[in-house]
Design a protein around this nucleic acid. Structure first.
Lengths: 287, 287
DNA sequence: ATCTATTGATGCGTATATTGCATTAATGGA
DNA sequence: TCCATTAATGCAATATACGCATCAATAGAT
């Protein structure tokens, strides 16, 4: 069974028309017909019901369409990753990280990696917290830096940094330093907070801070994106809680008031890994 | 890329010897060499390092070996399931169920299915609770009957039956009926209980019963298997809590004392399903 | 009802790919 | 140094896949 046959099948399953499909796949209708026939014969499964006028999927064909689509996609990612492994020091590693540390620990980390592996390409990406495990699993990312511990069996985590929460206010705001932050002063503020995520340790720490001040925050706006949040704070739409790593972004128009609440950063990676360079990069980051 | 090439690759990755592998795959060494070469060329990945004397996997080859093994296996299951879908009424459906109901609701359910679909083959299997979702997902089972609600997105559940917990004692035991069951009388008993599983609603119900009597059970033996448990009870090694459906097994040497605590049975199946007969069987069971 | 354009299947000759056989070249061990 | 083992390769035979042309069925237009 040839993978090309499955590709022909998937194309035909979308088009449901031999001539159009054959055109798109750059073969003749007769070749396509025979490829599908041979696929059906080899599997012992009729994939399409067809007469001279109409083509439609059988139940078994519908089932295999779904499965094969996923499977072929996975294969592509595996092959690409295998190519990266082969490229070794001149390959690419993909790092997913929160925006908050773009200007704090990331530059240092990147420069250490780049110095140690001059030919290695590094891709950076931002991924929503809930997608990170899946991105690692599917080889869409090789390393992920998160503010949450990952508990999955096939992912390893290690703490690499700790920073503090800060209250982010516009320049003109009356809050000047920690002594201005009290139960009363907080109660009258509007907050811009991250999207509340049950079981996220980062959310938990923020909640914990509010509990410490015995305040239920008045939060009407939620966002995960730092640049959006800082812009909103600057415009006076509310104040925010962010990791103080953001200070390094040196964003004008806002101030950070560091609070004595810690938030940890974790490095996450796949347990099962045959990528020698990735192993070395891991060692480098973890010292 | 031909799947046969991947099979050749996997065989060679195990043997690491062209002649032996070629022999096992019923081709000549030269054909095997060329298949592997063409696979490597098409992927642009060197899979083996070889000289005239030794063959070994490259890191990329090691990676793909693992992935392709899993993938090929999955494909096999998909094709087999697709064949079952095609066979329709003369296919096979696989039902996973707890041993407890083998003699109570199962016979009735099976006979209803068999009457409605005379050509359908039915396979029964017992699966540990924690494996059931995976068995459904991988098409190793089509229906699963459990005492726990399944919360997975891709699995649907419906309650199909409720039975009661019973205290299971050897014939000679002083407990005769419900009135003998008290906090004091329970406290002096040794129990054989199922393996405690956090988050299992069946465990919860048993715990709930003990809490009701304000007793912490003295349980030194744990098993999930009904036949093992009843044998142990008969030998006087302890008393057990079981669903009273077991009464229908008519096991000699033990007695069941029904308690007013309910345990529900759920039928679980895959949401995504193109198997028309399976759909019909579902409708039949759920009325 | 008849005609026509469209569509999937199929026969046939050609082009391409794959195989087995025989041989070659490299290498570890006697 | 010689020999047995082993992966690669040239070559001819065979098998497979392809495109072209054609056929047969059918929906829709007239």
């Amino acid at each position: 069974m040839d993978l090309q046959q499955i590709k022909y099948f998937l194309a035909l399953a979308r088009e449901l028309h031999f001539w159009n499909t054959a055109g798109k796949m750059n073969i003749t209708q007769s070749a396509l017909t025979r490829q599908i026939q041979s696929l059906e014969a080899e599997l012992g499964i009729q994939l399409f019901e067809r007469n001279k006028r109409n083509v439609k999927l059988t139940p078994a064909g519908r089932f295999l369409k779904e499965k094969w689509e996923v499977e072929l996609n996975e294969l592509e990612f595996f092959h690409e990753h295998a190519r990266q492994i082969q490229l070794g020091e001149s390959g690419t590693i993909i790092i997913a990280h929160p925006d908050s540390i773009s200007a704090s620990i990331m530059p240092d980390m990147i420069s250490r990696i780049a110095t140690a592996f001059p030919k290695l390409k590094i891709e950076l990406m931002q991924v929503r917290y809930e997608d990170q495990t899946e991105f690692l699993r599917n080889y869409k990312a090789d390393l992920a830096i998160t503010r949450d511990i990952t508990t999955a069996e096939d992912i390893r985590s290690r703490k690499i940094y700790t920073d503090h929460l800060a209250i982010v206010v516009p320049d003109a705001h009356p809050f000047r330093d920690v002594s201005d932050i009290t139960t009363e002063s907080l109660a009258s503020q509007k907050f811009i907070l991250p999207i509340k995520d049950e079981g996220s340790s980062y959310s938990d720490i923020i909640q914990q801070m509010f509990r410490h001040f015995d305040v239920v925050p008045d939060a009407y706006l939620h966002s995960e994106f730092g640049s959006a949040i800082t812009a909103l704070v600057r415009k006076g739409l509310g104040i925010a809680i962010m990791p103080d790593s953001y200070i390094h972004h040196q964003i004008p128009g806002i101030r950070f008031i560091s609070m004595p609440f810690k938030t940890d950063l974790y490095l996450n990676w796949r347990v099962e890994e045959h990528h020698p360079v990735l192993d070395n990069v891991l060692k480098l980051i973890l010292e």
